[in-house]
Write a protein that binds this DNA or RNA. Structure first.
Length: 469
RNA sequence: GUCCCCAUCGUCUAGCCCGGCCUAGGACACCACCCUUUCACGGUGAGAACGGGGGUUCGAAUCCCCCUGGGGACGCCA
């Protein structure tokens, strides 16, 4: 049974690249009936924050995929130290007491040749040290592994420096903790970003030193920003945060769908896929080797394809479900909404939204007492003038005062009115639409009038007439 | 500086491993037209790419080499 893990470090919010790593791990686990482990890599006490841990959970929960087991590295430090000790005892690591560091030749540290006796003595005396892996370069040999995505990989030990296993404060480094836990948790596949590809040679060395078979590795092409650099929290800001997508009104699945298409393909031209279809189609063979650019700008933080996918997902969602999701977004935008009313509005705006937050700009007039002020010139129809607009609105007021407020009778009544006034239907409808919606672009007129109700419509048309008079 | 990885439309990608079916396919975006009471949805269509140079071969987007370009890693961060 495959066992994979997603191992974020709580040093910032969950960004889209991490989210993709999580999703690919999830997909692999589900496709192969395996186990997905969430492991918090929090060995760097200085940089960890509760806030970012919360934000990671928030992001992962929103994705709504779940995981099977949970661990925190900070609760497993004894294991890491014990394994580091094993490496030391096998002579494959040494204590480096020269804490200056920077000028030091990273290949051949001065303390590399210290005798074990002296090393032990100084350690017992309480002298601080860094435990380093003793990379065997005499003679150099090639460290090899086969990556499931990038193929055979090889690197000479001559090009690998003596990296740290334990810090002078006694805490394990990422390399040590990660490998120790991968062994202990019996991880079978390590699926992570390609930025770890060169680290992997060090990890292979650690697995060897521990006498453990290394897991299979699958490195993912990086997600890069339009400026060409690896996506980063520091450089690109909140536009790369998963919560930014959530707050804008992405549907979790649309987001997942989009992210899956970055660096992976089902190879058969499918793009909109259900969760089940993704699980069934996901294999390492479909993963690309080249980095994927995610398109965003300061003005428009979301990739157009993500937005399109989301619009499609919105159109495919049920009215009840959509209305339920729209209510909080509308409230956040300051609109006075309730579920019942949203249920009537949702069908009118479903295909006019790409993000859930669009509800605020597309449906505001359904929920406000008083329309936002608009330019009275908007009331004047194509190839028409002020008197025409006035005539239309006056007639419309009479008609709507009498008509039954259902789609069909409104349709019939207003069309008849247009004919009487010898106007094109468009010339008849536009002033009415602007009067009741406060703008030219809006959902279909009769449905809109129906939902708005007679009282509101007459009131707004009256106001429009006053504006023109 | 050293090492590693990558290279098809603006972007995401199919094709590459197993050369010919590729006058390079799909999607998003953009543009045009159709539908239409506006907007949107939907439909139809157009433009748009194999980074360059050498090989190998009857034949190369596909195989090899070089160049160029891009990215990543080299921390007592992960």
């Amino acid at each position: 049974m495959p066992r994979v893990r997603f191992a974020p470090s709580p040093t910032g919010y969950l960004h889209i690249g991490s989210a993709r790593t999580f999703i690919f791990n999830w997909l692999y686990a589900r496709h192969n009936d395996g186990t997905l482990i969430l492991r918090i890599d929090d060995t760097d006490v200085e940089r960890n924050t509760q806030q970012s841990l919360d934000s990671i959970f928030e992001g992962l929960k929103w994705l709504d995929l779940g995981w099977d087991e949970f661990y925190r590295q900070s609760e497993r430090l004894d294991l890491h130290r014990a394994m580091a000790r094993t490496v030391l005892d096998r002579g494959l690591a040494y204590r480096d007491f020269s804490l200056a560091g920077s000028d030091e030749d990273t290949m051949d540290r001065a303390d590399r040749g210290l005798s074990r006796d002296e090393s032990d003595r100084r350690a017992e005396a309480g002298e601080p040290f860094v435990l380093r892996f003793r990379v065997d370069r005499d003679p150099p040999r090639d460290v090899k592994f086969r990556d499931a995505v990038y193929g055979e990989q090889s690197k000479s030990t001559a090009d690998i420096e003596d990296f740290a296993l334990l810090r002078s404060n006694g805490l394990p480094t990422y390399h040590m903790a990660s490998c120790a836990d991968d062994v202990d948790l019996r991880i079978t596949q390590v699926i992570r970003g390609q930025d770890h590809l060169t680290n992997t040679f060090k990890h292979v060395l650690i697995f060897e030193a521990l006498g453990a078979a290394p897991p299979e590795f699958a490195h993912l092409p990086l997600l890069i920003a339009p400026d060409g650099a690896k996506l980063s929290k520091r450089k690109h800001g909140p536009v790369v945060s998963v919560t930014t997508y959530r707050d804008a009104g992405f549907l979790p699945h649309a987001f997942v769908n989009f992210v899956c298409l970055l660096g992976w393909s089902p190879k058969d031209d499918r793009e909109q896929m259900t969760r089940q279809e993704l699980v069934e189609a996901f294999t390492f063979d479909g993963i690309n080797r080249s980095n994927a650019t995610i398109n965003f700008t300061e003005q428009d933080p979301f990739d157009p394809k993500a937005v399109w996918l989301n619009g499609e997902a919105i159109r495919q969602s049920g009215i009840e479900e959509l209305a339920r999701q729209l209510v909080p977004l509308a409230r956040a935008a300051g609109l006075d909404v309730d579920y019942e009313r949203m249920l009537r509005v949702a069908p009118l705006i479903r295909e006019r939204m790409k993000l859930l937050r669009d509800v605020a700009t597309v449906a505001d007039f359904f929920f406000v007492e008083k329309l936002l002020s608009y330019d009275p010139a908007e009331l004047i129809p194509q190839k028409g003038d002020r008197p025409m607009a006035l005539a239309v609105l006056t007639r419309a007021r009479d008609v709507l005062g009498a008509a039954e407020f259902t789609h069909d009778s409104l349709d019939a009544a207003l069309r008849a009115a247009a004919q009487e006034l010898k106007l094109k239907t468009g010339q008849m409808f536009q002033p009415v639409r602007v009067a009741v919606c406060g703008r030219k672009n809006a959902p279909p007129l009769f449905e809109t009038l129906e939902v708005l109700g007679r009282e509101t419509c007459l009131e707004r048309i009256g106001e429009a007439i006053e504006m023109l008079a």
